[in-house]
Structures are given as C-alpha cells and as structure tokens.
Write a protein that binds this DNA or RNA. Structure first.
Lengths: 346, 346
DNA sequence: TTGAAAGCGCTAACAA
DNA sequence: TTGTTAGCGCTTTCAA
C-alpha cells in the first residue's frame, strides 16, 4: 500500500488533520509544525491520494472533453489536435486534468458523458463541437451541469457559454474578396451541415453573394465529410456541372487539400483556372507558394479559451461568459483576378 | 446532493450492501430483490458515484495517456489523432476511460504523470511515444507501475510491453524499392533523432544501402521537426548540395507534404526529377494521382492494440506481451525508374 | 495552534 | 439470501 496521510502524521507526531492542513498550507498551522510535517512527507515520499481527496471535496479538478462521433472525420483533422493542444495548455495552467470521452456512435458517447457527469468524475464539460439538436448539450443544460461549447450553439444562444470565431463574418470576407477579384460563379464546399460552423460559413457566403446581387446557385453548394476524400469528391462534382464555378470557398483545409489534388488530376490549374480560398487552420504552411489565401481562425486559442472559460465558471460560478476569438484574413497565392478576362471578352 | 446508494436502499427496503450487490449483479441476490432494487434505482435516477467506487476498489478504470512535449510537432500530426482514435475505441470496448497528460515542457509532463500515478488517478499508463533516456519511462519502470509503450523502447526491450511496427524492415523495403528503380543517390529525411521510430527507420535505410554496396553519405541524412516546415527545410538543404539525391525516403507524411511543396517551388518535378517514398500515416489519400508510394503502418491499430494490451495487463496481470502491428507496401505514383537513363548515358 | 471524529459514497468481510 | 459494519484516504467541523 502507498503512503497515506496517517503514516506522515505518525512520523511527524501530529494528527492526520494537521497534515491535511499543511498540505493546504493553512495559515493556522505554525511554521515549526509545517516544517516538521513537510520533512516527514519528503522522507516517506508522500503523495496525496487524489481519489480520496475528490471524494471528500466533491470535486475532481477534472474536465471532461466531448468529441463528436469519429465518423465525421473530425478526429483526423489537424483542427482537432490543435484545439486539444490549446485545451491542454489552458487546463495545465490551472492544474486541471482532461478526461476524454470515448465511443464511436452518438449513443456510446452520450452514455459515456452521462457516466462522467453523474458518476462525479468531472467538474465540468467542454463540448468540442456544436451541432443542431444535440442530445448531449440538451442533457447538460437540463441538469444545469457546467459546460462550455467550442463553436456557436444552435439553440439557447443566450444561456450558453461558448467560445467561437465569427464564422459568418469570416466567410463573408473571403467571399467578398473573390467577388472583388471579379468572380461571379463562386462555389462553396463545406462539411456536414448539422455542424453550426458549416451553417455559419455558408450563411456568410450567401450574404456576400446577395449583397453583390449574385443569385446563389443550388448546385454550387456541396457538403461532404471534412476529409481529403470529401474535398476530392466535391471538386469532381463541381467540375462536372455545365458551367462550373471559377472560384471556391472551402470550409476546411483538409478538404481544400483534397480539392487541390482533384483539380490537379483533372488538369485544372490553381489559381489560373480556379481560385480557392479556405479557412486556415493549421495544415498549410504560411510561407509556401502553394499557400492558400485564407482566414486564420486561431484554432489553438479556441481550445485555450475554452479551458479558461470552463475553469473560470467552475471557480467563480460565473454566468455565461462568451469569448470571441478573432480571425484575420491572410492573402496568399491561390486566387487570381478575372476582371481583365471579362473585359477582353466584351 | 445526488442520489446515493442509501436512497435506493431505503426506497427498496434493503441494505446499502444489497444495492451494491445488485449493481454488481451478484448471483447470491434473489431475482425478486434485484427487480425491486432496480426499480428503485430507475425511479430515483440513480447513478453510482465513480469516485467513491474507485476509492473502495483502489482502482479507477482510467488509463493515463502521455504525449510527448508539444514542441516536437507531434501534436499537429494526423498520426497523433489517429492513434488517439484507436486508443479511444480500444478503451471504450472494455469500459475504460482516458486521462490526458497535460503540460508543455518535459518537466511539467513528468510532474503530471507522477501526480496521476501516485495520486491513484490511473490504473495504467500508455506512453504515446518512445525516445532515448526517457525519465518518465524510467520512473514507471522503477515503480513497477503498469504501462505500455507505443513504439519500440530504447532500453530494457525485454522487460517492457510495447506495440510497434517493424520500422527497420519497413524502411529497408522502401529503400530497396528505390534501389531497384536504379537510384543510388538516396536521401533520408526524418524527425527528431531521439525518437526511436526515427532511429529505426534510419537504420533500415542504412541497411538497405549497405546491402546494395552504396556508401551512405552524411549530408544525405537530415533531421527536422516532424512538420510541414521541417520537410520544406530539409528539401531545401538537400537540393543545395553539389550532387543532390535523386530519391528521398521521408519518415513522416506531414514532412513529405512539405518536401513536395518545397520541390515544386524550386521547380523540381515529382516524380520526374525526384522520387519520393514515405510512411503512409493518414494524410495522403490513397486514390490520388499525387499519392505517395509508401508503407502503410496501420496507425489506428497501433492505438487500438496499445489500449487492449494495457487493459489485458491490468486484468490478467500478464507479463510483457509485445504486439507487432503489420505494415504493407503500397506502390503509387511518386517514383520513377532511372535505369534507362543510366543505360542511355553509357 | 492542534486533535478527535464524522463523513464523502461505495465495497466486502463477516454474521446472521 | 440479506444485513451490519469497517474501511478506502482525505477534508472539515467542533472542541480544546
């Protein structure tokens, strides 16, 4: 058996409660005793049992992380790992730990979250995605359990703490940029439409078109898995249309990579024959000639802030604090102006 | 306060211990009481408190995951997320949870692992990397704490349970393939040399050269961060050599992407002017024309098996069970034969 | 400034 | 087949 508080107490000739107070650095304990107790801890190599402490405190200092079901390709996305890195750093700074939800299907995940929450394993939850009509979110909210969403909630926006970029605005800016370059036939390639992120980017895209008096075409909007394969499939579909787009807004950089590969295979050059803008997560190197003109959404900060938010909520009992992570437009080499061509034709 | 075992006991008119036995589905409890107790649980919405259970059982059913410090680019790698997915599935199947280590620096991580282990938070540990002289591994081994390594251990190979591919053989096969195509000037681009994975691939590469009586050149071997940027830097270095390689073995697909980008920018075509082989993790789509000839190392299985191994170890107290994950060679379009050219020259 | 004792919610040995 | 009770290792109230 491991060393317990009792062993330390015995060696230091004090009561267990005194040892506990020394650990908590209670001001009422004399320096002299503290030193003696600390020496004893040192000598025995004592480490507090976190489980026992959690039971007594009714708090674990653990945050549960909920990922979407693995079927969406979200796992594979570098987006995911970077958020995780942010979460990890944010948690570490406040001495919190992270417990991962496991499970492939939605049911398994839901079950797992219930266990974490009702089993008292976690003090709070971070939902690493936001989608329409999510059972888990509904469950957490109904229980009044502390949680934070990464991404804008679909419902109850007023009541939920979340961390997000302004994806509508970002998509609008990217689309505007293409319009400025003279493009009129602009396609949109996004992930699963049940994700609010996809919805918002689509919305921004449509807004920009509307403002420029461009009628959105149904066949220019494609939703696929957020994967290389999804991007490839989307590109093929778009090019098989009678009058294919001359520019594309792609909602994920993994997909964008797939799009570019597909285009190359079909002999369509970028940017000469197809302009592409994307949301810069992490995949593309910024100094590369093949770099995409994109919006940098600071993925790391998304995770970092989410961790900070849930911890603040737990420690201060704060009501919804919404963090908006800024984005910025990064112009690179994946687009070209077609104004001249249009004029040449007239 | 949440519903406890006592509330259930009261409602069902039994002792708490009986409820506990019903939960464990103890055969000694009559069906009649079981039904009554289950009804009471149902009615109250009872969920066992996992912390209390862990304290009583001296076991948490949680596995600690140790990632390398974030500085190595490992986090960003799709390799990482795919392993995680495998771990998640393996754990889920046996109803285990996963606790992430946090921390940027090696010291922080070490500290965190000590807390997990000595704090009794985890029943076992999975090291998601293997490198030379790793403090954490040494610590775990010294304590006799159950752990499994993903990757071949540097020391104590006989005593440690690990899950790995045969990276030496895989690298050898890739290099052989290039040699068969007539290449003699073959470069190697790998990640940090303190990772055993890098070491082994380098070893395989050198073995193949030796067997073909090709003297390895020092300047043909480059180690950079396992990142897009690392690949770019490596490609630039190799091309600035007087007599640059005609083929490259790249140890990571993220790097390979960087290499290809750099080559394109420098006007070097693939495969016409440079053949490339790589280790296919997950990034490259297999059906693409730009797909790399590579070795598929089944990254998902690496994680899945690691989870299975540690759980088996915990449940059966098994001594080292080593799992070797098979790899297979996948020929694509990133290499060309230079035999003809050689002959034309004579 | 310190100690004694109860309690966090569960499991398991021992009794009945 | 079920109940009683002690105990997992810690925190915290109450008392001294």
């Amino acid at each position: 058996m491991a060393i317990t508080i009792k062993d330390v107490a015995q060696l230091a000739n004090v009561a267990p409660s005194t040892v506990s107070r020394v650990i908590a650095n209670d001001t009422r304990i004399s320096e002299k005793t503290k030193v003696r107790v600390r020496k004893a801890m040192e000598k025995l190599g004592y480490h507090p049992n976190l489980i026992a402490r959690s039971l007594a405190n009714q708090s674990t200092r653990i945050i549960g992380l909920v990922l979407p079901s693995s079927s969406n390709g979200f796992y594979q996305s570098p987006f995911f790992s970077t958020i995780l890195q942010g979460l990890s750093e944010g948690a570490q700074e406040k001495h919190y730990s992270l417990l991962l939800s496991t499970g492939k299907t939605e049911d398994e995940i839901y079950e797992g979250v219930m266990n974490m929450v009702q089993g008292g394993m976690v003090d709070g939850i971070i939902l690493m995605y936001s989608r329409m009509n999510d059972r888990i979110l509904t469950y957490l909210q109904a229980r009044g359990f502390p949680f934070v969403v990464i991404g804008k909630p679909y419902d109850f926006i007023e009541e939920i703490t979340y961390v997000d970029n302004d994806n509508v605005l970002a998509a609008e800016q990217l689309t505007d940029y293409l319009i400025q370059l003279g493009h009129k036939r602009i396609g949109f390639i996004g992930g699963n439409i049940t994700f609010v992120m996809t919805l918002n980017r689509l919305l921004g895209y449509e807004r920009a078109l509307k403002r420029a008096d461009i009628v959105p075409r149904r066949e220019y909007t494609i939703h696929e898995d957020v994967l290389h394969e999804g991007g490839q499939a989307a590109a093929k579909k778009l090019l098989s249309i009678d009058e294919p787009p001359t520019a594309l807004v792609v909602s994920d950089d993994r997909m964008a990579l797939g799009v570019m590969h597909s285009l190359r295979e079909m002999g369509v050059r970028t940017p000469e024959e197809m302009s592409i803008v994307s949301f810069n997560h992490v995949l593309f190197f910024k100094q590369s000639l093949t770099a995409l003109t994109s919006v940098d959404i600071n993925v790391f900060d998304l995770g970092y802030q989410a961790a900070k938010s849930i911890i603040q909520k737990l420690q201060t009992g704060n009501t919804s604090v919404v963090s908006s992570i800024p984005h910025h437009f990064v112009e690179r080499y994946s687009c070209r102006s077609i104004n001249q061509d249009e004029m040449a034709m007239t």
